[in-house]
Design a protein around this nucleic acid. Structure first.
Length: 631
RNA sequence: GCCGGUGUAGCUCAGUGGUAGAGCACACGACUCAUAAUCGUGCUGUCCGGAGUUCGACUCUCCGCACCGGCACCA
């Protein structure tokens, strides 16, 4: 028996969970269950990351303390995991004492490694962001890229981790351990990042209050990302280095969505190298979900309605669909219509119906599970296929190919349907052929039992239902052929996946999603004196000409007419507007902004636009004379 | 603009230097134990476009197009 430790990320607790969290967690759950089935000693971690400025901010917006806010959010995750039948062993909360003490221990060790140094962070700071704006994001105006507010020059004492020192070792490790980062596309991406060079990272924040103080300097709070990563160890009682820790560290799989691989595959391993601890074996990234071809978006109201689909098709259909239809590592397009198709074709027709027809025949002709006495055509083939399926499954899980894994199982399901068909069992009820009939039905039941075992990591409730109907009282995980006892009483219950007709399902569809979610928008952060506002000179202008800027995907060069004068502006709207459609439009322009040079093009002002998931130009309700002041 | 990935039947995707595959959908047939289920047969493809290497390319090389990522860019 070997140990297997799988983790999901600890999800940031500034908002309630969504389908993306569900996807990561279901994948990890399937892995955990698969390894338990193989007899491994499994530890499965998930949880929430509860510290940091953003949570503080969300709590402030909600008018409660950060802790109270976290206490409100955390249960929304655990409730969802219950609903999704997630078999986690621990739900980590970073506000727990176990984590805090473990994190402190880790940070102390990191400090003692000598790779933490105190430096002065000088730079332009954005108060609303609570962060320094990196050099490369800076422009001549010194304005925050997110808030568009002036930055202040700040010098802050900060602790740094000597990440740069580990560049070569990281590079070597990734090169020598091809499976360390999976899939390969992510690995290549990170190799390129490494080749480009690493800079030391700041690991503390003096300006943030909601977090864990550095053990070696309580005036500073650990940067939330650094602290969060340690949870993978603190959850194992790293603090006391108890048995659990020794059994399960290093982790076998850190599962996550593709956008956070850098922290996991570069910074986290480097931190572990610094304190001389073994590295996790695999950093695994899955793709994102889209909905009917569109990126999920809170502001645009595009989301996956898990509740409705689970209610309509059942939890296992939802799990099955996510695991079966999406090829791991790529983005997957979630389409309720496909879920529906999968439900009927794979679950109702192939599997559900097979169980039902076999049980019907057994019920009608035998008392309980019949005895296999007369071997015949196809029997050996079926048995061999059972074993082959088991072997192939193993290979697929190793590469996280859940789609192929389920397809492999379903080939076997279809084979059994064919077996029943080919042997024409239902015609064998005559006395002289009845023993053969019993044998075929035994084989079919045994195949179904093995199928139930194989699907149990993916759709556990269904696996249990099948075994219940076969008559097993306790879930039997044996995969060797012949494990099914003769004579036990089968109970043909209701179809486990009743077909759902296209017609009556999905009626007019109430479309509760028609309107975008009510603004998740954060409150505006800082108050500005009216006098400050008056400093801005906003004017009505008309776009005379627009053209792309060479080498920049997002930029357009605009010529605008302010009435009294013409100006050239650069606007980052090329992804949302074509030059043609801009010409002639009235827009609002900040006329007294310092000129800036962007991509070698001079910009004498700025065009206002709503900027969220999409970008929409600000304009006046009716046209007004060019140069009119806006206030 | 740079780097990487993808582009194969209506849909989701496999695939190999030697005459194109699966599942779903569709059509027809068989069967009637079963959930309008099952089983069989069949159907559709300029394997993104162009050029090249080769006796032969969907598979290799180059150029291009589209989409998706990463980086740069967003005043």
């Amino acid at each position: 028996m070997s140990a297997f430790y799988v983790t999901t990320p600890i999800y940031y607790a500034n908002a309630e969970p969504h389908a993306g969290h569900a996807y990561s967690t279901i994948i990890a759950d399937a892995l955990a269950r698969y390894h338990r089935l193989k007899g491994d000693d499994v530890f499965f971690l998930t949880g929430v990351d509860e510290h940091g400025a953003k949570i503080h901010e969300a709590a402030t917006d909600a008018g409660i303390s950060p802790q109270a806010y976290c206490d409100r959010i955390a249960p929304t995750f655990t409730k969802l995991w219950e609903r999704l039948n997630i078999s986690y062993d621990i739900f980590m909360r970073t506000t727990s004492n176990m984590h805090k003490r473990g994190a402190e221990k880790f940070l102390a060790a990191l400090y003692n490694s000598g790779d933490v140094y105190k430096g002065t962070y000088e730079g332009y700071y954005c108060r609303p962001c609570e962060r320094f704006v990196p050099e490369k994001e800076l422009t001549d105006e010194k304005i925050c890229p997110d808030h568009k507010l002036p930055l202040e020059w700040l010098e802050e004492e900060n602790y740094f981790f000597r990440l740069s020192k580990y560049q070569d070792r990281l590079l070597a490790h990734i090169q020598e351990t091809p499976e360390f980062i999976y899939p390969e596309s992510r690995r290549n991406e990170l190799l390129r990042v490494l080749e480009g060079g690493l800079e030391d990272v700041s690991i503390s924040r003096a300006s943030v209050s909601w977090g864990i103080p550095l053990p070696f300097d309580p005036d500073h709070i650990v940067y939330v990302w650094i602290e969060a990563l340690t949870n993978y160890m603190t959850a194992l009682d790293y603090e006391n280095e108890s048995d659990r820790y020794h059994t399960f560290w290093p982790a076998d799989v850190h599962m996550m969505a593709k956008e956070i691989t850098r922290f996991h595959a570069l910074i986290w391993p480097a931190m572990l190298m610094a304190v001389n601890l073994p590295l996790p074996k695999q950093i695994v990234a899955h793709g994102w979900l889209t909905k009917d071809g569109e990126a999920l978006s809170k502001t645009r109201g595009i989301f996956i309605d898990m509740d409705t689909d689970i209610e309509t098709y059942g939890l296992d259909a939802f799990r099955y669909y996510l695991l079966r239809e999406f090829s791991f590592g790529n983005d997957g397009d979630y389409r309720p219509a496909r879920l529906h198709a999968r439900y009927n074709a794979d679950l109702a027709n192939d599997l559900g119906n097979l169980l039902n027809r076999v049980l019907g025949l057994v019920n009608k002709n035998f008392e309980g599970v019949p005895t296999p006495t007369i071997p015949g055509e196809f029997d050996d083939e079926i048995k061999a296929m059972a074993q082959a399926t088991i072997d192939q499954l193993d290979a697929h899980i190793k590469t996280f190919a859940f789609d192929a894994a389920l397809e492999t199982i379903w080939e076997f399901v279809r084979r059994i349907n064919r077996y029943v068909q080919q042997t024409q069992v239902w015609t064998l009820a005559k006395p002289e052929t009845k023993p053969r009939m019993g044998t075929i039905l035994y084989n079919s039941l045994e195949a179904l039992r093995i199928i139930s075992v194989l699907i149990s990591p993916f759709i556990p409730d269904t696996a249990e239902k099948i075994q219940n109907q076969i008559g097993l009282t306790e879930f039997d995980t044996a995969t060797a052929w012949g494990g099914l006892s003769v004579g036990i009483e089968v109970s043909r219950g209701e179809p486990i996946f009743p077909r759902i007709d296209t017609k009556k399902q999905k009626q007019p569809q109430p479309k509760p999603e028609a309107k975008p979610k009510k603004k998740a928008e954060k409150k505006t952060t800082h108050l500005v004196a009216f006098a400050d506002f008056q400093k801005l000179d906003l004017r009505v202008a008309k776009i005379l000409a627009a053209e792309p800027i060479e080498g920049a995907d997002r930029l357009l060069k605009l010529q605008v007419d302010l009435g009294t004068e013409k100006r050239q502006l650069v606007a980052g709207i090329a992804e949302h507007y074509t030059p043609e459609e801009l010409v002639g439009k009235q827009v609002i322009v900040v006329a007294n902004l310092e000129p800036a040079t962007i991509r070698n093009v001079e910009s004498q002002g700025m065009v206002l636009a709503g900027s969220g998931d999409t970008v929409v130009l600000a304009t006046l309700e009716k046209e007004m004379p060019l140069g009119t002041q806006v206030r």
